[in-house]
Amino acid sequence: MKNEIRFFLNEKEVVYTGSATARLLDVLRNEFELTGVKCGCKEGECGACCVLLNDQLVNSCMVAMGFVDGGIVVTIEGYRKTNQFRVLDKAFATTAAVQCGYCIPGMILAAESILSRNPHPTAETIREGISGNLCRCTGYNAIVKAIEIAANEGEGLW
C-alpha cells in the first residue's frame, strides 16, 4: 500500500506523506504554510478554518487527511486569484465588512459557497450560509450586505 495522500491544493497536485489522521487544518498551516486558514477553536464551532473541499465548504479542523485523498482543496490563498474573489473583495471593502479580519478568509469562502449554489440569495439565505462562521466584531450586517452587493455586481460569475 502506498503511503501517500495525493490531492489538488489550490490547483496544484500535492503529495502528503504524514498520518492520515492528522487534521487538514494543521497540515495546511504547518506543512503548506497556508496561514490564511485560521484556527479559532479546533472543534468545528467557529468556521475560521473553512476551506473548499471538492467545491464544498468544510471546517478544515474537522477533516482528517485520509478524507482528502484524491480531493480538491481550495484555500483563501488559491481563491484570491479568482474573478469571484475580486468581486467579493470589493464588496467587503464597500461595506467595511472586515474588522479584526480573523473570520474573513473563512467568511469569503462561505460567501463563495453560497453564491455558487444560489447566485441571487436572499438575506436569509446568506445568513444561513454563514451561520457556521462566527464573527465577534461586525454583528454580521456588513458581511450580509457585502455578499448581497457581490451577488449583484458579479452577474454571470456565479
Partner: peptide
Amino acid sequence: YAGGTDLMIQEVPADTNYLFLH
C-alpha cells in the same frame, strides 16, 4: 471514518487507524 465531525473532536492515540469510507 464517515464524515469525521464527531471523531475529530475526540483525542485519539497516535497509533489510531481510520477506515475512510468516502
